[in-house]
Amino acid sequence: MNPDTTPTRTPEPPDAAVRPTVRAATPADAEAISRMRSENLLSRPLTEEWVRRTAGELAHRLTPAGDARAFVIDAPDGTMAACALGLIAPVLPAPSYPRGLAARVHLVATHPDHRRRGYARAVVGVLLDHLADFENVTLFELHTSSQAAPLYREFGFAGSPALMRMTRLSPSTAAADAQPDSTWVPPQQYADSLPRATAYVCLYVTDEDDQPLQLHSVYSPSHPWHMIGGAVDFGERPWDAVLRECREKTGMTAVGPPRLLATVYGQPRAQRPYSTLQLVFDGRRLTEAQIRGFTLDPREHDEIRILPLEQWQALMPARDFTRLHAVADARRTGVAAYVDTWGDS
């Protein structure tokens, strides 16, 4: 906490007739909040690397599914004048906090140019009200200094400045039975509740006459011919996956910039319990010499074949040809394709 949190009798800016405007922070505010913490609260400012790391972590947690809530006041020049950040955490329920949720006021900071205007009081007040009214939090905690403790006592906190606590029970909360909170869950629990999907990338390649090139699979009799591609690794960007798969499957280096031709969705099935989402990129027209330079991995493919589009229909399942035809049309027309029947029985 900073010295500005010492209470004043006139919280409004002396040069303004209205109270400061407090708004909810978004992930885009994460870097500014991290810099406010580094420059105004910490005894030793963070390095730029740590500011970026902290901002990246906070941006993720400031999403609706995250555990962070913050409120800020913007300065006239667009910079951040003040901010208050709270972190929500589950705790074992008790009569004073039947929802089993606690919030820690993690930081309150005001830029030196905007202190002694009541900004800290304003952002803290809105943060506490939001946590109580919209997040069902009834147990609040914070660590502060003896100089700032009087401000928090005004809000209802009690205890020593080293660890101050407060419970705020609304009439409806106090009367209700203790029930699990349905409006907020820890990020990992929320992630575990989401449906699973597997992402794939493909590269659509043709010869100079626009005849599609396909690779023959040695491991998938149900999909004997397909485009260059494969699954996206965890944390990998789709185009990076294209570059990797191209090198692994053919020895070729794909040429950008990325141009998306189609999005292909497949429903989960018994043999494949996850949904699939394929992003098909344009691999351009290749010369005969470029195609001759392909080096196949014999564990995955044993043949390269180039045929007119209509001749591929007899060599692959109907759903695979539907995808290939849609991708070819997308390149021809310049309009990206959307296919949501791939993999249907």
Rank of each mutant, 00 (worst) to 15 (best):
R9W: 15
P13L: 06
P13A: 08
A16N: 10
T21Y: 04
A25E: 00
T26P: 10
D29A: 01
A30M: 03
A32E: 01
I33P: 01
R44N: 05
R44E: 06
V51D: 09
H60Q: 10
H60T: 09
L62C: 04
D67E: 06
D67G: 07
R69Y: 01
A70H: 00
D74T: 15
A75R: 08
C83D: 04
G86E: 00
L92P: 05
S96V: 10
S96P: 02
R104I: 02
V108I: 05
T110N: 02
D113F: 01
R116V: 05
Y119K: 01
R121L: 11
G125K: 04
V126D: 08
L127Q: 01
L127Y: 00
L139Y: 03
F140D: 01
H143A: 10
H143D: 06
A149I: 10
A158F: 13
G159D: 05
M166V: 00
T167M: 15
R168W: 07
R168A: 09
S172Q: 15
A175P: 05
A178T: 08
Q189L: 06
S193I: 08
R196K: 11
Y200T: 02
Y200L: 05
L203T: 00
L203G: 02
L203P: 00
L203K: 10
Y204H: 03
L215Y: 00
H216M: 11
S222G: 08
H223P: 00
H223V: 04
P224A: 09
H226P: 00
R237G: 11
D240C: 02
L243W: 11
C246E: 07
R247I: 11
K249A: 10
T250D: 03
G251D: 05
M252P: 04
T253N: 06
T253I: 00
A254L: 12
V255H: 05
G256H: 10
P257M: 15
L261W: 09
L261N: 07
Q267N: 11
Q267R: 15
Q267P: 00
P268K: 02
P273S: 05
Q278T: 11
L279A: 12
L279S: 06
V280F: 01
F281K: 06
G283S: 08
R284P: 06
R284G: 14
L286C: 12
E288L: 10
A289P: 04
Q290V: 07
R292I: 15
T295N: 14
R299M: 10
E303F: 11
I304V: 15
R305F: 10
I306G: 13
Q311A: 14
Q313F: 08
M316V: 06
P317D: 00
F321E: 12
R323I: 11
R323K: 13
A330T: 15
R331F: 15
A337T: 15
Y338L: 15
W342C: 07
D344E: 11
